[in-house]
């Protein structure tokens, strides 16, 4: 079982620079989900807007232009606009992804449909409350270092040493940006409301290898040793296929399942 295929897929993508020059000046058609639950009489609809494509245009740029020119009420979330903060997850032509780093030139027919991420509470239009979801996930998994020694640390003294390889390995798993794409791509999550999902599993995997964290396998079993946890995963791997950070979800879920299964007996 390998987690490498996602990395290769990214590398095989053709050069965007060449593509974007070729498609300059096209007319793009945006089909955007519109619904404001704050307004009682409002009903969900799909609204279409057309825009002239600019070189290097991203969905971030396009949505801002649409808001300014056509619909001042249009709701969406961007913060960093550089693919690191995880605010702008949405369903782009059927797949969850980060809108800020998606170039319009990626879509050959110039038609781009945008829907809010499912599963999360809808704030309005393309804006969903991932923050609330992630805070509750963090509270459930307790995504912090559990250590009794931590309380007695003298900050003036040399830090505890850590193997460089281990630090690198933790960082690899620490790169999750909590964008929610894995949750939206997960069929199990649709069926089981309390299912933790890949974002939670990758956190468990991250703290599980961290030698600063004292939690045992038995402790982790309480968090993920059920159908709401790692045994509920149907292994469809929507998480792995749609993770914007190419995190090794498949590998880590399999690892945690083996570990938890061993712990159960």
């Amino acid at each position: 079982m390998s987690s490498k295929h996602a990395h290769n897929a990214t590398q095989d993508k053709p050069r965007i620079q060449e593509k974007r020059i070729a498609v300059e000046g096209r007319t793009l058609e945006f089909r955007i989900f519109k619904y404001n639950p704050q307004i009682k009489e409002d009903r969900p609809t799909i609204v279409t807007h057309t825009l002239t494509e600019a070189p290097g245009m991203t969905i971030f740029i396009a949505l801002n232009e649409i808001r300014e020119k056509f619909d001042r009420s249009l709701q969406f979330d961007f913060v960093c606009r550089s693919g690191i903060c995880g605010s702008c997850g949405m369903i782009i032509n059927g797949k969850p992804g980060l809108a800020c780093r998606t170039l319009t030139s990626e879509f050959a027919d110039g038609v781009i449909s945008l829907l809010p991420l499912p599963v999360f509470e809808l704030i309005g239009d393309l804006s969903v409350n991932t923050g609330k979801f992630m805070r509750s996930m963090s509270e459930k998994v307790e995504t912090w270092i559990h250590s009794e020694q931590q309380k007695q640390i003298d900050l003036c003294r040399l830090e505890e040493k850590m193997e460089p390889d281990l630090a690198d390995e933790i960082y690899e798993l620490d790169r999750c940006i909590e964008c929610g794409c894995c949750i939206s791509a997960c069929a199990t999550k649709r069926m089981r409301d309390q299912f933790l999902g890949a974002v939670g599993f990758i956190k468990v995997a991250r703290f599980e290898i961290d030698t600063r964290d004292n939690r045992s396998d038995a402790d982790w079993y309480h968090v993920i040793g059920s159908d709401e946890g790692v045994f509920g995963c149907m292994a469809l791997m929507g998480c792995e296929d749609n993770c914007p950070k190419d995190l090794p979800h498949q590998h880590k879920i399999a690892y945690l399942r083996r570990k938890m299964a061993l712990n159960a007996f």
Binding site: W144, I145, E159, M162, A167, Y171, F207, D210, D213
Partner: peptide, 9 residues
């Protein structure tokens, strides 16, 4: 570091 940042070593 004690709170979990995986500083490069």
């Amino acid at each position: 570091a004690t709170w979990g940042v995986p500083w490069s070593r």
